[in-house]
Amino acid sequence: MSPSYLGRKVLQAIATLVFVVILNFMLFRLMPGSPERILLRNPHLDAQSIAAARARFGLDKPLLPLEISVDPPSLKVNPDSQFLAYLQTTASGDLGLSFEFRGESVTEVIGVRFWPTIILIGLAELIAIVVGLTLGSAAGWKRGGTLDRVGNGISLILYSMPYFVIGMPLIIIFAAGLGWFPTSGMLSPGAQYQSPIDQLLDFARHLVLPLATVSLGLIGGYSILMRSSIIETRGEDYVTTARAKGLKDRSILRDHAFPNALLPTVTVIAINLGYVVAGAITAEIVFNWPGLGTLTVDALAARDYPVLQGIFLLISVAVILANLGADLIYGRLDPRVRA
């Protein structure tokens, strides 16, 4: 990969990040209703901590580092401004205090919810990538065959189902009905574990249904994408060349069609991976999974803006990094962009 390609992509990511930070700042400071109303509307804060927060966020300072006025024409430089203070606090990982969670810091609140989401969505992505890409390429390769008709039909239906539409019936059947799995949570409440293994097993039992839900939800999209990509590739001349070489059907798919068909899907998958952090909000709600998704909804219900803002920032960073990753992987897989 050439340094210029790399450099361009990194620059692009940084530019997007700056944009997101500015957007974040604007959403919460420039909205009518003043920063106090949105940022400090915290029932759990006393006057003292409000004053402390004001000082830390620099809410008394002017908004922007530069002020341009037209009448009379002037350009004022503010060495001390809210924007700079915001950048400083954000960069140091200080995202403010949560309203809802008794004044805990947003970073802590988010930190607790981080791993459950990563485990759930990470595993689901893994399953969905393997199953979805396999199903999609097998279906597209034998377009019009039985596997294609059935597989594509199922994929289209799954693709039309939000997570909660998949998850709720799963609970009804496998949890409420058959009683095979717990209906919600990540660990049995109040359980005393004999050993870490027991705890892990309990965790696994709780994980099955949410994992199935998110995987199924992702499989549809991946499979459809891979299928159309394979169909496009199937008609390419180099696939005919591979056939002319007398290769077996399976080698043609594996060595020639698949690596090329994979290219357009890499981007989509990598971007999706960025959302690992966002979690499958609705899936988490349905199973009451203590991840970032449920946190988002709780914060939403309580209008806990600092938390929402923090989550948005975190997700944006993850998505931007994932995009960067996608570009870099793409560069590895496709020699044409390396040059």
Binding site: T16, R37, I38, A278, F312
Partner: peptide, 23 residues
Amino acid sequence: TDFFLILPTFVLAVLLAPIILDI
């Protein structure tokens, strides 16, 4: 456009809706 393509728009929607409603 690129920015909006990259942005986690669903999360943005979740964020925007209550702000607008508050206003």
